[in-house]
Amino acid sequence: MWFRTRTVPPGPVAAGDVLAEAEALRVRLGGREVLAGVDVAARAGEVLALVGPNGAGKSTLLGALAADLPAAAGVVRVHGRPVSGWSAHELALRRAVLPQSASLSFPFPVEEVVRMGRAPWAGRPEEAEDDAAVASAMAATEVTAFADRPFSALSGGERARVALARVLAQRARLLLLDEPTAALDLRHQELVLRVCRDRARAGDAVVVVLHDLGLAAAYAHRVVILRAGRAVADGAPAEVFTDRLLSDVYQQPVEVFPHPRTGGVVVAPVRGS
C-alpha cells in the first residue's frame, strides 16, 4: 500500500518558514485560464485567507497548493520542494486538505471517518499517537458526542465539522481548507476559525478559503484578494481591506470601519438609498 513505501519524514518547522508557495502560477481548467500568474506564500504560524468573488480562482489556487491541480506554468512548492518532487505519501505527511464538500459511500461511524486522517502515519512510530490525535481533533471540532453515529446520518454542518476533524487528526503542518465555514451556523463558524488560529499558534501554516470578509478580518493574519485569476492584494486585513478596493473587486459598494469597542476591522455592504 502507498503508506508502506519508503518516504522522507517531515523535518522540523520554525515560525515564519514558508510551507507552501506559488510563483507565477498559471492554471488552466477546461481550456480556460483560471489563474494567471499568481504569487503567494503560506508561512508557519499564520492564518492566510484567500478571498474574492465567485470565480476568482480561490479554490483553484488552494487545489494547486495542495498538488491536486497541475500548473500550466510557474511552480508550486511544499516545504521548500516543488510538488513534483514529493511522493503522494510524502505530501500526505506534510499537508492536509479539506475540500468544499465531504461525502462517503458507506455509513462509517464518525470516529472512523476522523481516524482516516491518520492513514499516512500507518507503520510509522507516530501511529502510536492515533488515539490521542483522533480524540483531540474530535474535541476541538465538538463532534465527540456523536462519535458512534453514521456519517451519512449527520446534518451538513455536522459533516463539515467531522471532515475538519479528519484533517486535524492528520497532524500535518500545512492545512489547506476550502470554505470550512460554508455549512455552519454562527457559533460553529467562530469555532472553526478559532481552531485555525490555534493551529497557527501551535506553529502550523493554515490557508483557508473564505467568503465572509468579516471572519477573514477577524481571524486571518494575512489575506490574499483574488479577482479574475489574479492576486490584487496581499497583506494584513487592516492594510488591504479598503472601501475602494473591496467595492471594486466585488462590484458592490462596501464600507470598512473600525469596530467601536475593539477597533478591529469591520466590513459591511452599503445598503439602502
Rank of each mutant, 00 (worst) to 15 (best):
A228Q: 07
R159D: 00
L213S: 14
F106E: 12
E129M: 02
A66E: 13
V34G: 01
G117M: 11
A71L: 10
A73S: 11
S59Q: 06
G203K: 13
L164Y: 01
F241W: 02
A44C: 07
R159M: 12
A133P: 00
L245C: 10
S103H: 15
A135I: 01
A72Y: 12
P237V: 04
S84C: 08
V270T: 03
V266D: 03
D178T: 00
P70R: 09
P99S: 15
V195I: 15
H259W: 06
V110G: 12
R6C: 06
A96H: 06
P237W: 03
Y250N: 01
E255M: 14
A139D: 12
A238T: 06
A64F: 02
T60E: 08
R194M: 09
A183N: 07
P109I: 10
S155Y: 03
A165V: 06
P258Y: 05
A236T: 08
R149L: 07
A88Q: 15
P99D: 15
A160K: 00
V162L: 03
P180V: 00
R197C: 06
L154Q: 03
F257G: 04
V143G: 00
V249D: 00
G55L: 08
V266S: 06
R201W: 10
A202C: 09
A135H: 14
V113K: 01
P12Y: 03
A165P: 09
R171A: 04
L104R: 15
Y219D: 11
D130R: 06
A36G: 08
L164R: 12
T242C: 00
L48V: 05
V97S: 15
R227P: 04
A88P: 14
L164F: 02
W121T: 11
P269S: 07
R4I: 00
R244I: 01
R94T: 13
G156V: 07
A88V: 13
A216D: 12
A137P: 02
G55Y: 05
A137I: 01
R230C: 06
L213N: 12
G117T: 01
